[in-house]
C-alpha cells in the first residue's frame, strides 16, 4: 500500500518533470527554429523584412543564393572570421600553455607579483584601451585593410592572462612525475614538451575551443579597427550592420540565412567537443 503510493507519487513527479523539460526545450529551441525557418522565406515573393508569422508560405533558397552570389562580401567576411578563429585558437593555446606551465611548475622571484598584477589588470574593462590599441595597430599598418592580422595580434597578445583554468589542470598533474623525470636528467623543456603536453589533451582542446569560438562574436573591436573597410569585416560586424543599420526591413531574412551558415559549423564543432568543454568549465568553476 505504502510502496504503491510512493510509486504513483514518483510517477507523477516524473511526468511533471517531463512536462517542464519539454516546455524548456521548446523555449530554448524556438529562436533557432525561427531562425532556420525564416532563412527560407523568399525575398522576392514574400518580403525580406520582419513579418508576424513563423513558417514561410513558400520555401525558397533565395537568401542563400544571395549570400553566395557575390553581391556582397559575405564569403570574404566568412573567410576572415575563419582565418581569425583558427589563428587565434592556435596561438592563444600556445601562450596559455606556456604561462600555465611556468606558473604551475616553476618558482621564481616575481611569480606571485605577476599573478596578482595580472589579476588586477583583468579588472579593467577591455574597451577602455580601444583607442590606444587602435593607434598602436594603425602605426603597424594593421587597421582597415589590415584589420584581420590586427585582430589576431590583439586577441593573441594578451591571452597569457587567461591561464587560470589551464593552470588549475596542470596543478592536478602530480609533481612527483616531474621530479622523477628530472632525476633521470630531463630538462624542463623536455618535460614540458614530452610529458606535460601529451598528458593535457583535454585542457588543450578546451582552450583551443574557447579561443576558436570567441572571434565569431567579436563585434566591438572588430568594428572599430575595420571601420569603413567592408572587405575586412568579420561576420559579426557585417551581420550587425545588416540587422540594425542597413535597412533591416529588407535584410532580415538574409541575416537569418547568414546566421544559419555561421552557426552550423561552430555548433557542430562545439557539440562534437562538448565533453572537453564541460570538463574545462566545471574544473574552472570549482577552482575559481
Amino acid at each position: 500500500m505504502n510502496s504503491s503510493s510512493m510509486k504513483t507519487k514518483r510517477a507523477i513527479g516524473n511526468v511533471l518533470g517531463y512536462i517542464v523539460l519539454i516546455l524548456i526545450s521548446i523555449i530554448w529551441l524556438f529562436p533557432f527554429v525561427g531562425l532556420v525557418l525564416q532563412s527560407f522565406r523568399s525575398y522576392a515573393t514574400e518580403y525580406g523584412g520582419m513579418v508576424g508569422y513563423l513558417v514561410p508560405k513558400q520555401f525558397s533558397l533565395d537568401n542563400y543564393k544571395f549570400l553566395f552570389s557575390g553581391e556582397t562580401n559575405f564569403l570574404k567576411w566568412y573567410g576572415n572570421t575563419i582565418t581569425i578563429a583558427i589563428f587565434v585558437a592556435i596561438f592563444q593555446t600556445i601562450m596559455v600553455l606556456c604561462v600555465s606551465y611556468v606558473l604551475s611548475r616553476m618558482r621564481f622571484t616575481g611569480r606571485t607579483f605577476l599573478m596578482r598584477f595580472w589579476l588586477i589588470l583583468g579588472m579593467f574593462p577591455g574597451f577602455l584601451t580601444m583607442i590606444c590599441l587602435y593607434f598602436l595597430l594603425k602605426s603597424l599598418g594593421l587597421t582597415q585593410a589590415g584589420a584581420v592580422p590586427g585582430l589576431i595580434l590583439v586577441s593573441v597578445a594578451s591571452s597569457g592572462m587567461g591561464y587560470y583554468v589551464c593552470k588549475g589542470y596542470f596543478d592536478t598533474i602530480p609533481k612527483a612525475l616531474d621530479e622523477a623525470a628530472r632525476i633521470d636528467g630531463a630538462s624542463r623543456a623536455r618535460i614540458f614538451f614530452t610529458m606535460i603536453i601529451p598528458m593535457s589533451k583535454p585542457i588543450i582542446i578546451y582552450t583551443a575551443l574557447v579561443a576558436f569560438m570567441a572571434p565569431w562574436c567579436d563585434y566591438v573591436f572588430a568594428s572599430y579597427i575595420a571601420f569603413g573597410h567592408d572587405e575586412s569585416y568579420n561576420v559579426a560586424v557585417a551581420m550587425q550592420r545588416w540587422v540594425n543599420t542597413n535597412d533591416y526591413q529588407g535584410y532580415f531574412t538574409r541575416f537569418c540565412a547568414g546566421g544559419v551558415l555561421i552557426a552550423i559549423p561552430v555548433t557542430l564543432l562545439f557539440m562534437f567537443l562538448q565533453k572537453y568543454y564541460v570538463e574545462g568549465v566545471t574544473g574552472g568553476a570549482v577552482k575559481g
Binding site: L128, T129, C132, L136, A157, F192
Partner: peptide, 27 residues
C-alpha cells in the same frame, strides 16, 4: 631550456601583455 625555462616561456606572453594591455591601460 632548463633552470631558466620560465624566462623563455614567459618572454612573449609578458611582452604581449605589456604592450597590448599595460601600456594602453596606463595611457
Amino acid at each position: 631550456f632548463d633552470k631558466n625555462f620560465d624566462k623563455t616561456l614567459l618572454a612573449v606572453p609578458v611582452t604581449g601583455v605589456f604592450i597590448f594591455t599595460v601600456l594602453p591601460i596606463v595611457f
